[in-house]
Nucleic acid binder design. Structure first.
Lengths: 340, 340
DNA sequence: CACAGCATAGCAACCGGTTACGCATGCCCG
DNA sequence: CGGGCATGCGTAACCGGTTGCTATGCTGTG
């Protein structure tokens, strides 16, 4: 049985239009692309023929001929994660403004798959945005050159020609810790992320080098993860740690923790202050609203496009970006209690 | 200056491999596609040549030749909305399992743009998933035939050959109202969605035909919207209405409302019960956890793929789906207070 | 031993556009 | 009035694969 396909049975091609208008295919092509040096009268005849036949050019054929697909790919580790969704959205909207479309590939948190996907996605498109916080650094360096033009989001690398958009997690964490210490907190729990992740490593670094060292300050580390459930499950350990504040790996973990604390009847921030990281859209609407460090992920997606666009146009891309997250104080943090 | 492009300077083509292996391009093609009737020895030589030259076939050229792109498009009104993100994720993962990739197009809530986008996206791909809750019904019917193969998500239509995956919003709302009435609520506020949307119309229908009519029951309608801010802004109106329960258009509105109520110090569910709709991943982690009607959007995305896949393979797609949302009772609803 | 029949690889057309090049036409100007 | 040049369109090659048809060589059989 015949497969349904792009090549639908009676699909009208440029040859049909040419015949209808009584000109050559070349002329039709020139008219469709608005190229100069075609007689206005003929141009009109061609447009009329195209309209009559309801012609629209075959994108694939065009791509093959001109060597560009007008499409870029983005590879993310998990489409369920709000951060990557934001990046995708920023990229998609920015690219759309320049007439480009976006192909998504979700590696479902599988680093091995990620390499395959990146290669394959890149081959289908003109350029690639790679978001791979878990990928082994060495493997990444080896992979990057063959992906160009490409940009790397959310982690550092030093491959020439590959723009990097990174987030200064350490500085973000420091501003959070600073804020908590200002409120009098001394014993702080770090509800940690996935051990293998670049982001977790960077956050630890921030914890170990406080901005304004304070007498008697200490950080207790609590192994956790990156999702709601992880935060929810970590509640007991956090409470048992004797900390007066919990600095969570990200907003999802913080929300999971908040949920568990609410179920336990623990007062936030009275008994325990809680902070997140990322400032996902939902962070503003938790109860209490979440204090967090804002990472402008949508903006990173847009900036990724700006750089890809420069590379595609043969221009020099703008300088790399290293965003400093900004502290957003909401209701989930408060002054440490006198009796604590 | 030469543009960077898919056609990189020294890109190795099938002709190079053929030359290297001392065979024709046709033979290389057959080997690469694992077609029968090629001498094992030659097959090995070709594979060796391909490996040596690091050859990988040009996807665009292949697509042109075989008339398939192995890509499907999805058009959504707003990539920031968790519901559409879920659909995208379900689609993307299911399609990936069958070797297909997904192109996304975000109409940014612009119905006019939506039509253009859908046409264009469809032309680049083998098939289309259309999520267009706001699009005018007449326009939709006119558009659908030329999009085939395609499936329509989240709304009804009767164009033959276009599978539909719809959600029975009315039934979902009825189960929520039922639940509230069981808890003793009589005066219920409906915090409404966008007037133009298909979903809002369907929900109203559910409200007007309760499952188990109850003496003295009444519904007060409060105009609102579909986002956090809308729900947040509607808090005063809800409180002023004298209702003991608020049925929100969706989870986002409910979360906005919960946030405002928390700020006002209003006890939920003591003073006011609140329900959402959709059961987005965050609904479980609000405080209090949100009672809502669960719409399996990821599943819809997967089912969309199953049907597209059938159409692409020339098979008869499975019957249409009309999901009945299931009530998920959490902590944001409770028995009406005696003194209310 | 001759010939039918089959397995295998190459030729060439094709997918549907784009574009370098060349030819024909007409205009300007010497 | 003729040469030069600009303009405008068609011819054909090309993008990089796939595939129907055919030619060749080998095997098996009568």
């Amino acid at each position: 049985m015949a497969r349904m396909s792009t090549r639908a049975a009676g699909r009208v091609t440029i040859a049909h239009v040419a015949a209808e208008a009584g000109v050559s295919r070349a002329t039709v092509s020139r008219v469709m692309n608005g190229l100069a040096s075609v007689d206005p009268a003929i141009g009109e005849r061609v447009r009329a023929a195209a309209a009559k036949l309801n012609y629209s050019p075959n994108t694939v054929a065009r791509s093959l001929a001109i060597g560009r697909t007008q499409t870029v790919a983005i590879v993310v580790p998990d489409l369920a994660n709000p951060m990557f969704q934001e990046t995708l959205r920023g990229l998609s909207r920015a690219a759309a403004r320049d007439g480009y479309r976006v192909l998504v590939a979700d590696s479902v948190e599988n680093p091995a798959e990620e390499v395959i996907l990146a290669r394959e996605a890149r081959r289908r498109c003109d350029a690639l945005v790679l978001v791979a916080p878990r990928m082994d650094a060495e493997q990444l360096e080896a992979l990057l050159p063959e992906l160009a033009p490409a940009v790397l989001v959310n982690r550092a690398s030093a491959v020439p020609g590959i723009p990097v958009l990174s987030v200064d997690y350490a500085s973000g964490i420091r501003s959070i810790v600073d804020h908590l210490q200002d409120l009098g907190h001394r014993r702080i729990a770090y509800v940690a992320g996935p051990a293998a992740s670049h982001g977790d490593k960077a956050r630890r670094e921030g914890l170990s080098r406080p901005l304004h060292p304070v007498e008697g300050a200490e950080v207790i580390e609590i192994p956790c993860g990156a999702m709601f459930e992880d935060g929810h499950a970590a509640a007991q350990a956090v409470l048992a740690s004797g900390a007066t504040a919990a600095v969570c790996f990200n907003d999802l973990v913080a929300m999971g923790l908040l949920g568990a604390l609410h179920e336990e009847g623990v007062d936030v921030p009275g008994r325990l202050s809680v902070t997140g990281f990322d400032d996902i859209p939902f962070a503003r609407y938790t109860s209490p609203a979440l204090t967090t460090a804002s990472v402008p992920q949508t903006h990173l997606g847009e900036q990724a496009w700006v750089r890809l666009w420069a590379l595609l146009e043969g221009r020099e891309p703008e300088h790399d970006v290293d965003v400093k997250p900004s502290l957003v104080v909401r209701a989930s943090t408060g002054r440490v209690r006198a009796d604590a």
